[in-house]
């Protein structure tokens, strides 16, 4: 893609800002609620574009270390879920808990950063 195009996260930020400042105040009830939720989702997509690739790569690396195997993020998550179900990893395994805390916190930094400060 040409380097001159606006970057996707920047475009999203501009669209979000416009909806929030110019459109939202003109709406009521149901429409206000849905556009408000949509504005929040645009902010989520923006954060995902900026932070997602690094978070995914770190998650994948942690999973590979925990499981002692390699694979895609999806494959490794499936393998860990199965290991937990089959009791092959202890529920209080510190490595497991650290990994899950880190993973949910990284997801919250994208989906709802405010949750972490509560």
């Amino acid at each position: 893609m040409p380097m001159t195009l606006s970057l996707a996260p920047d475009m999203l930020a501009t669209i979000r800002d416009y909806l929030q400042k110019e459109i939202l105040p003109t709406l009521d009830d149901d429409k206000w609620f849905n556009v408000k939720v949509a504005v929040n989702l645009l902010a989520t997509i923006e954060r995902e574009l900026r932070q997602g690739p690094a978070a995914d790569e770190e998650e994948r690396a942690r999973l590979a270390a925990l499981l002692g195997t390699s694979g895609t993020l999806g494959e490794l998550n499936r393998a860990l879920a199965l290991a937990i179900r089959e009791g092959r990893i202890a529920l209080d395994d510190p490595g497991l808990l650290d990994h899950l805390r880190q993973t949910t916190a990284d997801a919250l930094r994208i989906n709802n950063p405010q949750w972490l400060g509560r």
Partner: peptide, 8 residues
């Protein structure tokens, strides 16, 4: 849609 945290 396997989720290790839900599984735990």
């Amino acid at each position: 849609h396997p989720q290790p945290a839900i599984e735990l």
